[in-house]
Design a protein around this nucleic acid. Sequence first.
RNA 1: GCGCGCUUAGCUCAGUGGUAGAGCAACUCGUUUACACCGAGUAGGUCGGGGGUUCGAAUCCCUCAGCGCGCACCA
Length: 730
Amino acid sequence: MLDSRYDSKEIEARIYRDWEQSGFFNPDQCVAKGVTKKNAKPFSIVLPPPNVTGTLHMGHAAMLVIEDIMVRYARMRGRKTLWIPGTDHAAIATQSKVESLIYKKEGKNRHDLGRENFLARVTQFAAESHATIVNQVRRMGASIDWSREAYTLDDSRERAVREAFKRMYDMGLIYRGARIVNWDPKLQTTVSDDEIEWVEEKVPLYYLKYGPFVIATARPETKFGDKYVVVHPKDTRYAKYKDGEKIDLEWINGPVTATVVKDAVMDMSFGTGAMTITPWHDATDFDIAERHGLDKEQIIDERGRLLPVAGEFAGIKIKDARAAIIGKLKEKGLVVKVEEGYEHRVATSQRGGGIIEPQIKEQWFVAVNKPFMKSGKKTTLKELMRRAVAQKKIKIVPKRFEKIYFHWIENLRDWCISRQIWFGHRVPVWYRSTDAHGRPNGTPSDSRGVEMCVGETPKGEGWTQDPDTLDTWFSSGLWTFSTLGWPKETKDLATYHPTDVLETGYDILFFWVARMVLMTGALLNDIPFRTVYLHGLVRDEKGKKMSKTAGNVIDPLEMIEKYNADATRLSLVVGAAPGSDIKLSEDKVRGYRNFTTKIWNAGRFVLMNYRPEFAEVKISMSAADKKYLAGAKRAKREVARYVENFQFHRAAEHAYHYLWHTFADKVIEVKKGDLKGSDAKKAASAYRLLEAILRECLQMLHPFVPFVTEELYKNLPRKESEFLMIEPWK
RNA sequence: GCGCGCUUAGCUCAGUGGUAGAGCAACUCGUUUACACCGAGUAGGUCGGGGGUUCGAAUCCCUCAGCGCGCACCA
């Protein structure tokens, strides 16, 4: 007989173990054991791999729940269902985490340890983190196929990365070049445009005398080498100056010869309509310089200090130099006006928090605007990404994110994929130069006698591998097919790709979702998934982002310990419309714990009234009972409809209401008398009805609250399946 | 600057043309065996403001306001 108390700790541990041992998380087993038809329609999802930087938070929990709902539903509907687990090495995130841990504990940096030793430490950290994460995924009840687990940095994925790099290089989509990149002086690496956080700042806007011009700038400390003054070609104020005209003038550290450049990028209404440019440290200026073939000079070094071009200011950190430079400019009478409170955005590194200093660097890039041939047609990566969604091959839920996606693509620049960090996939390129100096300064394949080998480790003497590693999103971009065995033509790849749904947070739509579309389009000429379902961020009850420093973090494991896993799951689904943030409070979890108790008690009540002799009583169902049963079936159909339309919040709520306010409050109450009365026929008929409805309830609730429903199912007197998890949903 | 979202009961939210809903919180009553992690009941909203379309609008259109977010080469 069932305990009056629902002992979640014992039950959850036991049930998860039984599920896992049954092998039914693996679709091959389901087919082998006859649970799933051999030719059943596949349903596949890849788990967005959590970073091996620590532990799972509520956002991960929300993701696991939504995916598990889809997976359990699909499995019960008879689909050949695969959910692949994995973890992400998260290059920069993990490396900087371990670096700071080691520095705090031992006072050493990565250079003190050396590349090999340091990487061993990161690998060890990643392994510990992995163990924690895997345990947490299990505790949430995820019905995921552990036999196919992958890691973005394991051997199989390494092969995929090398192959992808090689193929894209051969297609001309990956190139090495000196372009302006986002340099993080703190982490000493480049970062991509998407890894930047713009911070609004109010600074003085300086109007400086530049010969006959007045130019406005918020960053006087970068202006040393400025020798071009740019104006709009149609600006009548500057009509008397010809494009390319040279003017001698007095500047910060003495006389310079300036050249007039006319470019339509200028906004005539801003400042004086004239500006000087610093092409080495500003993306816009870089573009102007490229368009007009202008010189570019480095002013700031990799650690944020001024170079010798700054004369007396050389060696000073730019932040400290500003006041001194303004002082000198004032002395020389070059400051015309200072406008206080000018609003301006500063690029900061999302990871390290430091201020990004654009630099021109020789890096590896993915060319997004370069035409290439794809199945006989000319296209670009940008176009390919746009069309996948525009032509409705990929659907984004909620739809409004499609617009955001298109907008992002329009503004996309070439993607810088090389990083100057150690942890990650090393760039699969080898160089051999006659002077044997490792990586050369120039273009590797240029005339300076440097040989280059891409893709596989070359044979022979004197080769040096590129010291850089790849952006972590390069390997995650391959995730839907690298997890299925690509570049090998595996059966899994043929069966489960493209995947059905990619479920993730809207905050990584660009980082990840778009990159997957890009990589899959380029390499497989296909889409990675048919539907993108975006969930919101999990916030605290006041709508604030959960963070350790704010102390408002609700830990999913703690909620599971205190309440139970099913309650934790429901609290992350109900009230969470697609794409909108979820406000979570402990009260909410407690509320759903009460609901799991209600399920337990309703189920227990039905089961405790079972008598074996009911089997011998012949009954025909009354019209009223048929109506009750039909109501349950209708509720289940509604739940199914909501799940299929990705409205999990409504599905869960619907099932919740049916169980509590119809089944428990009405049907059970009405039938209670009959059940307990002396009339055997009435009792049998009441029981029969309640059990039938209970079965419907257990099914419709199972994707949301798998543990309590599975345990009740286990105690049904007659069962059709070994587990509720695989009971056909009809 | 461009774009998007939100604004419904104290709180969290559902509700896409037809007499305002749920959960939590509050209040009252109730422990005669499924459940006090409960039940029965009560109270609480001119659906952000204004205008329009319509026989009829929380729901469609316009406009304003507040909050939040995304994007952007205004130095």
